[in-house]
Simulated scan of single mutants.
Amino acid sequence: MRITVAPDRCVGAGQCVLNAPALFDQDDDGLVTLLADPTAAQETTARLAGALCPSRAITVHEG
């Protein structure tokens, strides 16, 4: 699994950080930043964070 983020699409809702703080953070403008690709144990959390993103700024790539 790999994750990409699009800060230009981010609206700063923070759902990613609330649900997966080990994977995501917000910069000084409140926009998403990726801290790390998920481990096998974090894959479910990563998918949830991607699904909860209201602006679809997080893309989860399977495989």
Rank of each mutant, 00 (worst) to 15 (best):
S55M: 06
D28Q: 13
Q42D: 05
E43S: 09
V60W: 10
A13L: 07
A41G: 06
R47A: 14
D8E: 15
A40V: 14
A13C: 15
L31T: 02
Q42S: 05
A13G: 10
V11Y: 01
T39W: 02
G30P: 10
G12L: 08
G63E: 13
G30M: 04
H61T: 15
V32Y: 05
D28M: 11
E43I: 13
H61E: 13
G14S: 07
V17L: 05
D25E: 15
A49D: 05
R2C: 03
G63P: 14
I58T: 08
E43M: 10
T4V: 15
R2Y: 07
D37G: 11
L48H: 10
R9I: 04
L23S: 03
R56C: 09
A22I: 03
C53G: 09
E43F: 01
P21W: 00
T4S: 14
G50K: 02
D27L: 01
L35S: 03
A46I: 09
T44A: 14
I3R: 02
A40E: 15
V11G: 11
A20Y: 00
L48C: 08
R56Y: 09
T44G: 08
V60M: 14
P7H: 12
A20C: 06
C10V: 11
P21H: 01
D27R: 00
I58A: 06
M1V: 13
L31D: 02
L18K: 13
Q42T: 01
L31E: 02
R56K: 13
L52N: 12
V60Q: 08
A36E: 04
G50E: 10
V11D: 13
A6C: 07
V17F: 02
V5C: 05
P38G: 09
T59E: 15
D27C: 04
